[in-house]
């Protein structure tokens, strides 16, 4: 038997999210991938803020915290060093990006948004989607906010602001089977009720053939509603809700700093590097 090779099958691909099926592997690998995507994929985020003037209603730490949580485009994150590994003493352009923000409100009120953050590096900018920029603080007439912010490379393990993902999850691929022998014996009303018992429309009732079939198994949230219904009508074996071993449906939703496929690829390469390190170390140990 040839060695089992994990496979990825992309189900859906959008600008900010993707769904794929990881198969022929087990939960540990799937989970390792999930964990690395969340916690160890590096991105850029604002980490140091120097305030020159802040007469807004929010205090310095609060604004600094808000700035940190603004996702920055990090597709070129590899070109930066981690500051702690960089050869410079404090921070330099190899490990950080400087942002300037200076807003004074002359009208009644003014919103300071992520668009007001001016980057010194074209590759690292606040994420901008359509006309939806992130509000940092609202200024009243005469108030001013002037600061410089320094973004650094980091990982989600250290602080949530470096997480590239919003949602990263997997679920077992549902395996739903209807016992058609029992189903055939049910009257039409029960069949319809059975099909409707599912809140996410896994089953479909075909009027013409008068059959119930599994239409969209992947919708299943294991809510057990169909099981409850079949128990209620006295046929506990009417439906089997299980999961297919070795198949994991992944959903990755990006915060915008990286594209979903970048997150997955980056995570895979980090996993690979980690394994390489283990391999390297082990080899050294054995050599001794």
């Amino acid at each position: 038997m040839p060695p089992r090779q994990p496979q990825i099958e992309i189900v859906e691909m959008k600008k900010d999210s993707m769904t794929f099926i990881l198969s022929k592997t087990d939960a540990s690998i799937a989970n390792a991938l999930r964990r690395v995507m969340i916690a160890e994929t590096p991105t850029m985020s604002i980490d140091l803020v120097e305030f020159e003037n802040n007469t807004s209603v929010l205090h310095d730490e609060f604004i600094a915290h808000r700035l940190g949580l603004i996702p920055l485009t990090s597709s070129r994150v590899e070109k930066f060093n981690f500051t702690r590994e960089c050869s410079c003493t404090d921070n330099c352009e190899n490990c950080s990006v400087r942002f300037n923000l200076h807003v004074t409100c002359t009208d009644d009120t003014k919103q300071v948004t992520s668009d007001d953050l001016f980057s010194t590096d074209a590759d690292v900018r606040p994420v901008h989607r359509e006309d939806d920029s992130i509000v940092i603080v609202k200024l009243a007439k005469g108030q001013e906010l002037k600061l410089t912010a320094i973004a650094k490379k980091g990982v989600g393990k250290e602080h949530a602001k470096w997480q590239p993902t919003c949602i990263t999850t997997f679920q077992y691929d549902p395996d739903i089977r209807i016992n058609q022998n029992i189903m055939d014996r049910l009257d039409e009303e029960k069949k319809v009720k059975f099909a409707n018992s599912c809140p996410v429309k896994v089953f479909a009732y075909d009027k013409d053939t008068r059959t119930v079939s599994v239409e969209a198994a992947s919708n299943c949230v294991y809510c057990q509603e169909c099981k409850f219904y079949s128990n209620d009508i006295g046929h506990p074996d009417l439906v089997h809700v299980g999961y297919k071993p070795e198949r994991y449906i992944f959903t990755v939703e990006s915060s915008g700093s990286l594209e979903p496929q970048e997150i997955v690829l980056s995570a895979l390469s980090i996993l690979k590097t980690k394994l390489a390190h283990v391999h390297e170390n082990l080899k050294n140990e054995v050599d001794f």
Binding site: T169, Q171, V221, Y222
Partner: peptide
């Protein structure tokens, strides 16, 4: 990453 997660993430 160590917290439990649901299918909706």
């Amino acid at each position: 990453i160590d917290m439990p997660f649901s299918e909706s993430g």
